[in-house]
Design a protein around this nucleic acid. Structure first.
Lengths: 259, 259
DNA sequence: TATCATTTGTTCGTATGTATC
DNA sequence: CGATACATACGAACAAATGAT
């Protein structure tokens, strides 16, 4: 980790890259502090703002955590994927069971809303009324927190009285209820990630630079009519989601270059 | 959007919050530029560094994109999940087909490596030798780019000669080969996300503040012996992954509080 | 084509606040 | 209490990209 920075490519980025490489190579181990800002200024012959920009880069890359009065510490990334949430369902007859178990931090809140945004596209309903059930959950082992939200369109709730009465029933119960109501259920889950919103940082305990995983599961009647939506949000630093891939038995259509 | 900032809570954060709120409320619509840094300095009576810190916050929140010489523009978040990659397999007899098709940007590169890190855990092999096949792919419609990596442990390749000869065959071919070799294949995919590394920014075209989705698919023989690993990386700003959830037929064990 | 005003990007310097040890 | 560390905020200058003149 010597002290030579050429131009161009901003000096703060070069410094960030060098530090990132030192972290990746293990030269700077998790838990140990970076050299202080003053040291880095002297070592590399750059000014304070340049050093601070470099360290800020490392923070947004999720490589270090800075603590006022102490230092900037290399984050332990091996301990990163700690919690694995299996997004699998088990079924026996008309009963369902979810693979991953949570404990609720607060009791669920039920509200009446309208379906907008991503939910509208997935439920194929725009601006229609719906029940929304919000839960704040935590993993019983690690204490990691999750936000869970269920959206039940009003037309679905009206067709199945038990849903309207207890929209906050457990999801496995709801699946059973819908099955008894004659629906042949199928599910599709879609996963993406984004930077946390300000309120999510606190609620989900998202560490600096870590994204939020957003997973949305749609329950269909048959293969195509959306009945309800679940949305799960979690800090990606603590969580990975797993899916069992089951090949569909379907006629082969030719396609080129797929991987 | 008036100009009153109290202390404490850093002024740059207050300014960032006010701008974020203006974006959330629709006062600042997607595509329109924020007031210029000079304007914001005057409006709020703060210095240029303070304004720049605030805008930097918005960038890492993924709310705006800044372009030198032009301005900082509110990002269109509705157009965010543009590309949907279905992580589903289809099967007919011993033939397989992937749902999502890509076109290769470069021809695959084959290297000999050792299995470490997340791959070691998933393949249940530590430091063992393996083929690694790297591909840079793109979506034929949108042009979005993906990095794909296949890891084939050497013991698997040696047991199935076709793999050792052409480790860079298409995955569906490899699945077929393994099936013909007598393996009953199953798959498990795990998804997480993280901030992009410096080289990924360029290779995957990751916009500022957007995380990278990392999805790893393990192919098992039977239910438990890992044969090979695929790793797919993509910018979460452009991509969502979809999974078909197929309930497993299994005896019901009781569990509390699952959602 | 060349110039110029505007806008963001980079880098320096300096001062002060605040948490930690 | 004092030394050290990061956090915030100011001012200033120049670079680089853009778009219009």
């Amino acid at each position: 980790m010597a002290g030579n920075l050429k131009r161009p490519s901003p000096m703060y980025k070069q410094l960030a890259d060098q530090l990132a490489e030192a972290i990746a190579s293990g030269e700077l181990e998790p838990g140990v502090p970076l050299p202080s800002e003053t040291k880095l200024m002297q070592e590399y012959g750059v000014s304070r703002p340049t050093v601070r920009s470099a360290v800020a880069e490392l923070r947004t890359m999720g490589l270090v955590d800075s603590e006022q009065g102490r230092g900037s510490f290399v984050r332990n990334q091996d301990a990163a994927p700690s919690v694995t949430l299996a997004r699998t369902l088990r079924r026996s007859g008309k009963r369902f069971e979810a693979e991953s178990a949570f404990s609720a931090i607060e009791s669920p809140t039920i509200t009446r809303t309208h379906i907008t945004g991503a939910a509208a596209a997935l439920l194929e309903r725009d601006e229609e009324a719906a029940f929304a059930v919000e839960r704040l959950l935590s993993d019983p082992v690690t204490g990691a927190r999750y936000a869970h939200r269920t959206v039940i369109p009003l037309d679905v709730a009206e067709a199945v009285p038990q849903l309207a009465e207890r929209p906050d029933a457990e999801l496995t119960e709801i699946y059973a209820t819908l099955t008894e109501a004659g629906h042949a259920l199928t599910w599709q889950e879609s996963v993406t990630a984004r930077a946390p919103l300000p309120d999510e940082r606190a609620a989900l305990g998202v560490s600096d630079g870590a994204p939020v995983l957003v997973s949305r599961r749609v329950t269909y009647s048959g293969d195509d009519r959306p009945l309800l939506l679940e949305e799960l949000r979690a800090s990606a630093a603590h969580t990975q989601l797993t899916f069992r891939i089951t090949p569909e038995k379907a006629p082969t259509r030719r396609r080129a270059g797929s991987v």
